[in-house]
């Protein structure tokens, strides 16, 4: 489902990741844990090919990073649900349209779009905010919109980059519950976090990364 084999990404500055090899099985929860700057986001970026590995390869479903052309990248990304560290909501449109966007992209019909968006909003407990704009929401609410967007296309796997990063413990726990519920329905989760204690308190495998390498 998701496999990284000896992946290396290097930035011009010399930082990056190397020799990253791991696997996420169907239905599994994996925490990628490490301090700030360890390379967690870079690992996730290599999976959705925002950063192309300079060595090794990555398997996502039927896609192998070695053979994925530039034109294929959007289609590969549609197989993944991605929750970005900085949310990356579309601030020119309301919550509903933020989520419906990824369905418009794949050409889902209008009626189905409405049903799916409302469902995803209900999953993250934000049904009442569907007509709000991102800047009108709290950080935790924005995070939940990002999650709703990531799951609305029913991806193989959810990549979540520090989804509890800037949230207070109660809100963080809520977000974790949302993720665990999503996992119960069969979606695998790969979550990057610097919070080892948080990772340990949930059911899931922990992979540790430091200085760009797994330890």
């Amino acid at each position: 489902m998701l496999e990284l084999h000896n992946v290396k990404v290097s930035y011009p500055t010399g930082d990056g990741i190397q020799q990253i090899t791991f696997k996420v099985n169907p239905g599994e929860v994996v925490f990628l844990v490490g301090p700030s700057g360890a390379g967690k986001s870079t690992v996730l970026k290599s999976i959705f090919l925002e950063e192309r590995p300079s060595e090794g390869h990555i398997i996502v479903g039927e896609y192998n990073s070695l053979f994925v052309s530039k034109q294929d990248i959007p289609y590969l990304r549609r197989k993944l649900g991605i929750v970005f560290q900085d949310f990356k909501l579309l601030n020119d449109r309301d919550v509903f349209r933020n989520i419906s966007f990824v369905l418009e992209v794949v050409g889902v019909r209008g009626k189905v779009i409405k049903r799916k968006v409302l469902r995803a909003l209900a999953d993250v407990g934000l049904s009442h905010k569907s007509r709000k704009y991102p800047e009108e929401l709290s950080g935790g609410e924005q995070q939940r919109v990002a999650i709703a967007r990531a799951i609305v296309n029913e991806p193989y796997i959810l990549l979540a980059d520090e989804p509890t990063g800037n949230l207070d413990p109660d809100t963080a726990a809520e977000i974790m519950n949302v993720l665990m519920r999503i996992n119960m329905r069969g979606t695998s989760i790969l979550m990057a976090t610097h919070n080892f204690a948080l990772a340990k308190s949930y059911d899931g495998r922990i992979i540790r990364i430091e200085n760009g390498q797994l330890i």
Partner: peptide, 18 residues
């Protein structure tokens, strides 16, 4: 003016044509 939004659209699977 919309370059950030466009970048995000690409990250969530929008094709250039779209």
């Amino acid at each position: 003016a919309r370059r950030k939004i466009i970048a995000t659209m690409k990250l969530v699977g929008a094709t250039d044509a779209f």
